[in-house]
Write a protein that binds this DNA or RNA. Structure first.
Lengths: 250, 250
DNA sequence: CCAAAAGTGTTCCGCCTACACCCATGT
DNA sequence: ACATGGGTGTAGGCGGAACACTTTTGG
């Protein structure tokens, strides 16, 4: 929002939108999902310079009358072919504005993190751009500063698992506690004690609740599990803390 | 960063920066400090329409070759007269991009939270705009969507006190544990048990460390306190959790 | 001597960890 | 029968809450 410096006033008072260097505003999306017990990220292959042929995060320009959130949903739908984009978890990560991050022009990008429960195979984008789910660890060097955005997204998600109900966003509407536990184990890269995980989750008010008509889902082997769904809470009290890593860097 | 949609390409391939509706990009600053045991926010009074005469968050336009962070520091220096802006804690809050949030034109604003130890009296800005420290609770209706930005900032700061060493940013370089406790009590609006607070803080590795040549600072009455300073850690393990509010809304 | 703030000690209780053990299902 | 995953029980210990108590200053 405009402040009171003279630069702003001279630009704004006359409503001259082009008097100052304009900025291109884009959104970038770090779309994460769990496939085969591993964290995957949605990437698209660039068709043009710069970075032609390299993989990058999906994204695109804001249209004149949409918010960054709306642009992110639109781009996501266009590039993955998802229908119910309205329901999924979308969250601002941060905004990247360093000059020179795009060699062509000044681009300010609002980055989002999106979490998907299952991973529908990615279709190419509307203009036939190639899209692919890639294991997080194999997401090679990406175009622009997307490596950093991706790293920021992972760190943020890992931290938010502790004190928010974010993990349910990786799960389908109805899920088993085993599935929920896998989310934590995969994102954190640790093993958790199943009985204790179960109790902690159930003891946290508003985290999950059993589905009334509970038909228990079987996962091949073993006893079929009771189904749960997200109860309303956004923040977890008490939080589900990561196991204490002794050698943690201060 | 550009994606692969056609809109983007047609705008970008020709390097035509004005082919699409340009966006004005600004920064807004929620500058918080503690004065007289209460949370205060730095506000400036607007001189022009819209919202002329109303109070607003300080901020301003990005210059062509500076990042949002740099713009935030520059604006802060200009509007408060602070010299060592380089040292203080500045952190991205989120980006506000809803169309219509500025009635004049399309403005995308990157909001920051800044935390100051003491509160030097605010000078008016370089162009004589009025600036004032205001108790958080008395920050009346602000211009634009700044009420929301301010609320978001407070919520974020409160949450981050739990699991980061952010509280030290409200303190001078060397501080007493009593001062640190006041930060928590003021931002959270709760009372904390002094002995337990003390032990928890000292038990969290990397949070604070005693200053070697410890001359103990007196605060009028009572035993002078030992001085501490922030040790390196950014995240606290274990976190300093807020006292459990039972009637917390889910 | 008293008030006020810093700092230490100690007890109690809850929760978290760990691991043992039972349940239900597929092969 | 047995492997596999779901689910319950329980003993031990660590840590936080609560509060008593000592220390050091200013008035």
């Amino acid at each position: 929002m405009p402040g009171h410096d003279k630069d702003a006033h001279s630009a704004v008072q006359g409503y001259d939108k082009h008097a100052y260097e304009p900025f291109a505003v884009t959104v970038d999306l770090a779309v994460l999902t769990l496939r085969a017990g591993a964290l995957h990220i949605l990437l698209v292959r660039r068709g043009e310079e710069p970075y032609a042929g390299q993989w990058a995060l999906p994204g695109g320009f804001l249209l004149p009358d949409e918010s960054a959130e709306a642009a992110a949903r639109r781009e996501l739908a266009e590039e993955t072919g998802l229908n119910d984009v309205s329901g999924l978890h979308l969250e601002q990560l941060r905004t990247y504005s360093e000059p020179g991050r795009d060699p062509r022009m000044r681009v300010v990008s609002v980055a989002f993190t999106a979490l998907l429960p299952d991973a529908p195979e990615a279709r190419g984008g509307s203009d036939a751009a190639e899209a692919r789910w890639t294991p997080y660890d194999e997401a090679g060097p990406l175009a622009f500063d997307h490596d950093r955005i991706l790293a920021d997204a992972r760190e943020r998600v890992g931290a938010k698992l502790e004190y928010t109900s974010l993990a349910t966003a990786f799960c389908p509407p109805e899920f088993t506690l085993g599935e929920l536990q896998q989310v934590y184990e995969t994102v954190w890269g640790t093993r958790l004690d199943k009985p204790n995980f179960r109790r902690k989750v159930l003891a946290t008010p508003g985290f999950v609740e059993p589905v009334p008509g509970a038909p228990r889902r079987t996962s091949g082997r073993g006893k079929p599990a009771a189904l749960h769904r997200a109860a309303g809470a956004a923040r977890l009290h008490p939080p589900l803390l990561r196991p204490t890593q002794e050698g943690r860097p201060a």
